[in-house]
Structures are given as structure tokens and as C-alpha cells.
Amino acid sequence: MATARNSAQAAPGSGLNDDIGEDKRLALYRSQLRIREAEQRAFDLFLQNLVKGTSHLSLGQEAVASGFAEAMQKGDLSFCTYRGHAHTLARGVSVEKVLGELMQRDNGLMRGKGGSMHLTSEEHGVMGSYAIIGAHLPIACGAAWRAQYKGDKDVSVCFFGDGTTNIGAFHEALNFAAVWKLPVVFVCENNLYMEYTPIGDVTAVPHPAADRAAAYRLERIIIGGNGADVVYRTAQKAYAKARAGEGPSLIEALTYRHSGHSRADPAKYRPEGELEKWKERDPIKIYRERLKQFGVGDKVIAGIDAEVRKEVDDATEACKAAPMPPLDILTTDVYADGGWAWRN
């Protein structure tokens, strides 16, 4: 149906029946938009003092999360950072669960016990969001080791920022994964800033991840991280390599965050015009154009836009109405018996 229509209207030389196809493109668009709308809502709710604690938004970086997640199969595992809302949403976790956690409500993903920086949904393959820089790279190696040992075909995908490339765990994990030939894919989202400092000011090489790949006999891979199609194809290739038993990949995706590092950061350290320049390469804008190139009508796009906004609006209302967590969960799940007893 849609495919036939779109084939007829596809841009020359890049028809809709290409390797990605219309269904996946619409999914990529929807995924990016969900992240954009949910993150923007998180920011608005923070201004209303309804999102507490810290939060690290991925506004502007949506294509990386969506491209890698949409290329995954069920059972593949995501390991995220404290900037992990995007990767969590991209695996299909509901906006309500994510916003609920940010708003510290009982309907949150972890009922308020983890918070923004630790989003986890194992049923969706989201194996945690890690707030100690670099900690999850070795952990992803361990999950990949289990797959290798048991003959499972899942891939562990580990997302991190450019700043992570200067911490020891990054180098330990890369070497470990390469020596053990583990089915793990390391994705560096290079958004140009290590928190408040330009990554180039504190790193010996221009490309903080890719320029280190050779040290671990890995291919040097740098991609534009704001084009979801490029990201998706890169992910597919890396996952296939991992599943074939050919070892890890390290991918550096160039992108840019539209907001500050965290809610506390107005990002005044940026040179004038930089944000505006990157906003011209806004992944959502790029992808909307891309869909149109492939013949997707405005009506279809507007339909997705409306559905996503409704999901975010409904989630917001549900979270506002949700109770705060009950105090009796304070002492649950410290130990595997469900409790917190350390003595008899």
C-alpha cells in the first residue's frame, strides 16, 4: 500500500524499496520525535518545578538513539549513560514511565528509586543508565561475554559521550572487548563538549573515540550522527559483525546537544552562532525532509506528529495525577530477598 505509492514518488536513485524501507523510516521518524517531545516536556516540567533533581537532555541528539535502537533486534541490550532518556524511550519504554520517574512519582519506571540518571527497563533490553562516567563499558563487555559463552545471538550496545573517552574504564573495556572478541558495539556520541569544556581542549586527538580505535586494532569509524539513516545503516553493519563473532566496533557519531549539559547549565560557553548552525542540521528537521524526499505525504507526517504529542500530553497528565511513591519502598530490594536486613 504505502510502499507502492511511495515507490512511484521516490526520489531518483533512492527509492523507498531501498534497504531501509518506508515502515522503518516512519518508525525512525516517530522514535526521534517521541524523544524530542518528551525531552522538551521534561525541560518544561523542570521549569514548573515538577521535575526534580538533575536531568541531562538529548535534545538535538535524537538520531543516534533512534538509529541504533531501530536497528536492534528483540533481546539486544542497551547500556546508557545518565543522558539516557533518549535511549530508554528509543527501546519502546513509555513516555509516562520515563516522565513519571523524572517527576518522582509512583508510576515512574523505578518508582522514584533511581531517578533521571538511572533509567532501567530490562524487559525492553534497557540494562541500566550509568551515572559514573565509563562504568558501563566494562559492564556491556560482561553482557557480551555471557552471549559469547552461551552462544546467544544478542548484541550489547553501549552509548557514551565524548568525555568518557578520557577515563580509564573506556580503555580497559576497549582492550578487553577486542582481546576477547566480544559482541559489543561502543557508540560515542560526540556532542563536542565534555560537560562544560570543549572536548578538543582536553583530548590529545581530534576525534576522541575514533582516533583511539587503532590502539585496539579496531576500524576508525566516524559518522554524521544527525542523519538517522546513516546511523541506522552503521548500526546494522556493526551488529551483523558482532553477531557473526567478529568482535566489537567503536563508532563515533558527531552530534550536538541543543541544551546545556544538565539542567543547571545554560551553556554560555558556546561560541556565538554555533547552536544556530547545528540547529540547521536538527535531526528531526533533516528526517522530515528525508521522508518527504521519499514521497511520504504531509498528512502522514502530521498524523505521527499528532499521535506523539498526544502520547506526551497524556503521559504528562497521568504523571501529574500520579501519587508520590509510598514510604514502604524505601527499604525494599537492597538485597535479593527483597529486603534490607544486614544482621539477624
Binding site: 566494562p138 559492564i139 553482557a143 573495556a173
Partner: peptide, 18 residues
């Protein structure tokens, strides 16, 4: 390798997944 973080991190990832 002499990589204590990788040793414990890998143990954790393996433990989390079975």
C-alpha cells in the same frame, strides 16, 4: 589483562544477564 575495572565490570554484566 591488568584491568581491574574491566574484570569487575565484566563480571557484573555477565551476572546481570545470567
Amino acid at each position: 589483562p591488568i584491568s581491574e575495572q574491566a574484570i569487575l565490570g565484566a563480571a557484573m554484566g555477565a551476572a546481570m544477564t545470567g
